Simulated assay, not measured.
Amino acid sequence: MAAVSFQSVSKTYPPSRAQRAHGNPGLRALEDVSFDIEEGEFFGLLGPNGAGKTTLISILAGLSRPTSGHVSVHGFDVQTHFADARRQLGIVPQELVFDPFFNVRETLRLQSGYFGIARNDDWIDELLASLGLADKADANMRQLSGGMKRRVLVAQALVHKPQVIVLDEPTAGVDVELRQTLWQFVARLNREGSTVLLTTHYLEEAEALCNRIAMLKRGRVVALDRTSELLKSAASNVLRFKTDAELPWELARHARITGRIVQLPAQNALEVEQLLSNLRQAGVPVEDVEMRKADLEDVFIDLMAGEQTPLEVAR
């Protein structure tokens, strides 16, 4: 049995009165999304802003109803067996949501109570220590920094020992220390059998952590495969260099440009030679030239820039 199953999930938000008057049918956020996440997987859900990731997670959490399709967690439908499905889930949201009237330990005890768990202090102590919150246990939530509040959100999601952990942009805007602490702890839980679903814009995290990845574009699945297979589908090499000059259009439209750093796909040595020749002819001075293997960001950019027809890659 799959840990999480999305079956033909679609979601359309109804139009406003003004939109209806102009014949607008509404916003289709998800269109026939189907995939399973197996028990014990570390699964990545990637896509640009507005691709439908958070909508899909909201449906999984029971906070939003799909227009059509079904979602289940360990066999429990999230709509018809909400309580059973919700007990299996621990969800870390994007937003920093907290109660300003409690300290950290009280917050976690209260969260335990929502799931009917009493005398949970041993596990709470372990969570506090593992997430670097032990010295903040008696601090009021209002006194914590943004990074510390996010650590508490992670602890809240894990306080009832869920079988499925959902991390929705958990490291957005946080420091390196928290990222390392979080990933070490979550990787440990995954090794111990927990299923993890991660959404992130830090693609290097997804590449390092996720066994399998689904990519969404405009509410549709455009890639679904093991991370290693997705990497094989990318250009085998990337030419990387620095320049202060503007690239000619024919090169710029294929380039990934970050400030002075330019990266261009190159399948082989002949293409590298041709690219460098084109740069010289265009009068573009380059420095710090190097080659690297393609990464998940290269795959992501190629898919998001490609056709909208879903690419069904072998599971």
Rank of each mutant, 00 (worst) to 15 (best):
L198M: 14
L198Q: 09
T199H: 00
T199Q: 02
T199F: 00
T200K: 03
T200S: 15
Y202F: 13
Y202W: 08
E204T: 10
E204C: 08
E204K: 03
E205A: 00
E205C: 02
E205I: 01
E205H: 00
E205D: 10
A206E: 12
A206N: 10
A206K: 00
A206P: 07
E207Y: 02
A208Q: 15
A208N: 09
A208F: 04
L209R: 09
L209Y: 08
L209Q: 14
L209H: 07
L209D: 05
C210G: 09
C210S: 08
C210A: 11
C210W: 01
N211L: 06
N211E: 15
R212Q: 12
I213F: 00
I213T: 00
A214P: 03
M215G: 00
M215E: 11
L216N: 02
L216K: 04
L216T: 11
K217M: 03
R218Q: 15
R218F: 08
G219Y: 05
R220F: 04
R220C: 08
R220E: 13
V221K: 13
V221Q: 12
V222A: 04
A223L: 14
D225R: 14
D225S: 15
D225L: 06
D225F: 09
T227V: 10
T227A: 06
S228Y: 05
S228I: 12
